[in-house]
């Protein structure tokens, strides 16, 4: 039986796809067979972040409509044989996704996969609702910024009322906070909401803080999930997050400003 994780945020541009790609790769590298699904029908981008954009033949909607089998549409990652990508359709309209269709695909994937990551589109329309509907866990990606925090809270409301678990009165979806684009320096100056501020407002279990990092852009430029850049702070933050999610005790990092030594201060970095 697979565990279904939705990566959601409400607001766009906070790092959902970056997070989906990183988490999926992290779980797969741990040896778990993992599928990552792009729910952003009409605006697919996960393929680009994963670096498999030229290998897309069939997509999510083709499988729902019976025009291709799941095995034909799944793209096997070239770096990790436990990771598979199901791209979104680029041409169809959003109504192409149906609850029955999505449910059927997730059920079939659940037979052989351990984790299924649903990369939600921004907004609260059909794609976003269906990405979260079947979820067991929700990774709420939030930036330390007013609009993002408000939208995250809105998504929490929807998670607790419009998911399958909510409708069936099952155990609630487990919700985790992933605070991304965090800048400890600006937090210290009082220019940015701190982890504690965001926690006070959203009262979520903090899975990790991802620092604002140049490595994220570099990774997406080359189509490499940032978690594979083991030297980067963002990559390490995602590795920590995967380990914490799997139950390991990992102390939080990247919350406080990195104290530079004398040499660091002299030569900068």
């Amino acid at each position: 039986m697979a565990r279904i994780i939705v990566v959601t945020s409400g607001k766009g541009g906070v790092g959902k796809t970056t997070t989906s790609a990183a988490i999926a790769m992290g779980l797969a590298k741990k040896g778990f067979k993992t599928a990552v699904i792009d729910f952003d029908v009409g605006l697919r981008n996960l393929d680009l972040i994963m670096g498999c954009e030229r290998r897309v033949v069939y997509d999510f909607v083709n499988v729902i409509n019976g025009e291709a089998t799941l095995n034909q549409a799944l793209i096997k990652d070239k770096r990790c044989n436990q990771l598979f990508i199901l791209p979104a359709s680029q041409t169809r309209d959003k109504d192409a996704l149906t609850k029955e269709g999505v449910g059927k695909i997730l059920k079939e994937l659940s037979k052989t996969f351990k984790y299924i990551i649903c990369d939600s589109p921004a907004g609260i329309e059909r794609g976003a609702n269906l990405a979260m509907y079947f979820a067991d866990d929700a990774f709420v990606v939030t930036n330390p910024e007013v609009a993002s925090v408000r939208d995250s809270d809105r998504m929490l409301g929807i998670l607790s009322s419009k998911s399958q678990r909510a409708e069936n009165n099952d155990e609630a979806i487990k919700e985790y906070l992933l605070l991304s684009r965090y800048n400890p320096k600006r937090v210290k100056l009082g220019e940015m909401l701190s982890v504690d501020d965001v926690q006070d407002i959203l009262s979520l279990h903090l899975l990790g803080v991802i620092p604002e990092s140049q490595s994220v852009l570099t990774a997406s430029n080359s189509g490499i999930p940032v978690i594979l850049d083991e030297n980067s702070d963002a990559g390490q933050a995602y590795t920590d997050i995967v380990n914490r999610y799997l139950g390991e005790e990992v102390p939080h990092r990247f919350i406080d400003e990195n104290k530079k030594g004398l040499l660091g201060r002299l030569f900068g970095s």
């Binding site: 925090v149 009082g190 220019e191 909401l193 701190s194 501020d197 006070d200």
Partner: peptide, 12 residues
């Protein structure tokens, strides 16, 4: 940041 937090708390 403090202003942001206060506004958010009321709104949320």
């Amino acid at each position: 940041a403090k202003v942001a937090k206060e506004r958010l708390q009321i709104l949320v």
